[in-house]
Design a binder for these strands. Structure first.
Lengths: 337, 337
DNA sequence: TCCTGCCGGGCAAGCGGTTGCCGCTTGTTG
DNA sequence: CAACAAGCGGCAACCGCTTGCCCGGCAGGA
């Protein structure tokens, strides 16, 4: 069905330029790819003619091996999640420093779309950063065989990755709640396929063992504000004095949902988010949350991809760990007497 | 500098596959591109061998005209601006419906980066949606000559575009303020190169004429929360009872800035934003703002690009206009006694 | 039995650009 | 004045893949 484009201008080639300039095609080619090799004057003339003919190099036609495209793809699950701001910004700064252009692709939490995206992007970028990937380890390894890949917040044996210390961060947030006197903590879980969700739960469990706090798991909920609103409804059936949310969005949604139910935060229930996204301090009450070094995360990932593009071996399959930090704001308070 | 990749596996070609399968390269080619043309059995065998050899089609080597990539690029100025959520989501839904993959590129409000991005993306996508473009009309026309382009919220003669009725929306917001008794309105302006900024100001001026309100312009400020904070400082030197901001982000920043100066909203100053982005109802007080049909904007733009990719002539250079709607929330109030 | 037509596969040209090599034109030097 | 080198442009092969054309074989109809 790709009916031939009716208005397809045949596109001007070096041959056209060569004819117009009265030189050989090879000279035109050199005028562009090796300017020193041809007489400065001739080169200038050629480039002039090329320009006014509207000549556009078609680099992918370059004889041998695929050219560098100077583009790097960052694929993420959901743009509406402000977490990705900082992450993307980090990756962006690394790209900019390297003279690269960053392209973003959203997969909407769908494995099939992610596959299609990867398949397509693979051809035109030099490397990829995979965040919140929902496809299988082996599919990722497949991709990594073709182009440099770094996975974010997930470990795939054999593929370089950078992760944040989600477990310890979660542990810290529970510790904080314990210090405030809370004895039961409800976890509002996120997507089951998510690596981070597993780590969060691990942190909770460790806290349960070492700190003697009671933990409860609900969900899974969508990792969005709406998911959080729903979580509030579920929570209301088995209340607890403290809640740890999968991420900031869920936490914010939970607070809104609780508000509608007439439950005050932090008066009646303390809430801790995760990510310290930009929204965390814009909402009120301002959100207590675990700050993930999102910017560093994105930057590190992109830098590593770039290094691999530059020819570095994909070194240490050991995932790089980045530390977290608890940011106490207004949604946590001592347990009500 | 592009030192030859040391670990570059020569990459397997159809010739390798052909040799391994004991057939001619052309047969291998056909086995993939025209499966009906070759014996089903032979084809299957070839595909099998190809797979286990790790053969990957290199579509850009396809002899003639550049293949469809099934990707569409949306280039935008600043990802952190939640306006783009909806817009991108709209474009995304159109792409998905058409089986396309949407790639996003951020230009950070920089014309040179936008140029580089365009230059690179142009090669690998089938069409582009340009939002908040900061480059010249002629540069845009240049791009439009190569690939289908639709411009959002800006009109470029000769290039199809879809815009929202910014002028009328602005007029409406001033009208609302006038009805509340305000007599002077300060405009917190955005980037000068922005088409929307010009339209906003036009709406203000028309309101001044028709409604007899006094208007004042300050700025330009960066179209971000921080820009808004700065705007508050500037405004403080010539206070007015009402403020119209370039967009929601600036409005939110203004409110925070005002708060730090001890000025209450809407008690001492009414504020109207623009865009009705997701944040508008998450902040408190909730923001009065002009709702732009962001989703429709993105969808329409993408649909049109897609139609052009499909061979449709780039029709009516008449920009498509989409209407706005004023959403009154909590940041506007009758002028204080 | 011979002719016809179809099927499946190979040959080779060509897509647009790059590059090794060759040869012509200058200019320099002994 | 001859020998030589450097500079510069052209020729042609080649990159990996597609495709028009051709050819051999086999089956079915006359």
């Amino acid at each position: 069905m790709p009916e031939p484009d009716p208005d397809a201008t045949p596109a001007v080639t070096i041959y056209d330029v060569a004819r117009a300039a009265g030189v050989a095609p090879s000279t035109v080619s050199r005028a562009f790819s090796r300017p020193g090799r041809v007489n400065a004057e001739t080169g200038e003339r050629i480039r002039q003619i090329a320009a006014q003919l509207g000549y556009r190099a078609r680099p992918q036609a370059r004889a041998t091996s695929p050219t560098r495209s100077s583009m790097l793809a960052v694929v993420l699950a959901d743009l509406a999640n402000p977490v990705f701001y900082e992450l993307v910004r980090g990756a962006g700064s690394a790209c900019e420093a390297a003279g690269y252009t960053m392209m973003l692709a959203e997969t909407a939490e769908s494995a099939v779309r992610e596959r299609a995206t990867l398949e397509r992007a693979l051809e035109s970028v030099d490397g990829l950063v995979l965040t919140a990937s929902r496809i299988s380890d082996s599919a990722i390894r497949q991709v990594a065989k073709v182009k440099p890949v770094v996975v974010v917040n997930r470990v795939v044996p054999g593929v370089p990755s950078v992760v944040i210390d989600v477990e310890r961060g979660t542990f810290r947030s529970v510790q904080h709640l314990v210090e405030l006197g809370h004895e039961t903590v409800t976890y509002l879980s996120g997507p089951e396929a998510s690596w981070a969700d597993g780590m969060r739960w691990r942190g909770l469990r460790r806290a349960a063992e070492e700190l003697g706090v009671r933990i409860r798991r609900t969900g899974p909920f969508a990792p969005t504000v709406n998911g959080g609103v729903q979580a509030a409804a579920t929570w209301a059936q088995h209340r607890s004095s403290a809640v740890v949310a999968y991420n900031d969005l869920v936490a914010i949604g939970f607070i809104r949902g609780a508000g509608r139910l007439g439950v005050s935060v932090p008066g009646e229930v303390s809430v801790v988010g995760f990510d310290n996204s930009a929204m965390a301090e814009l909402v009120s009450p301002e959100l207590t949350t675990v700050a993930a070094p999102l910017h560093a995360l994105g930057r590190t990932a992109a830098q590593n991809v770039l290094a691999m593009v530059g020819g570095a071996r994909s070194q240490a399959p050991e995932p790089m760990q980045l530390p977290t930090r608890l940011v106490v704001r207004e949604t946590t308070a001592p347990v009500a007497g």
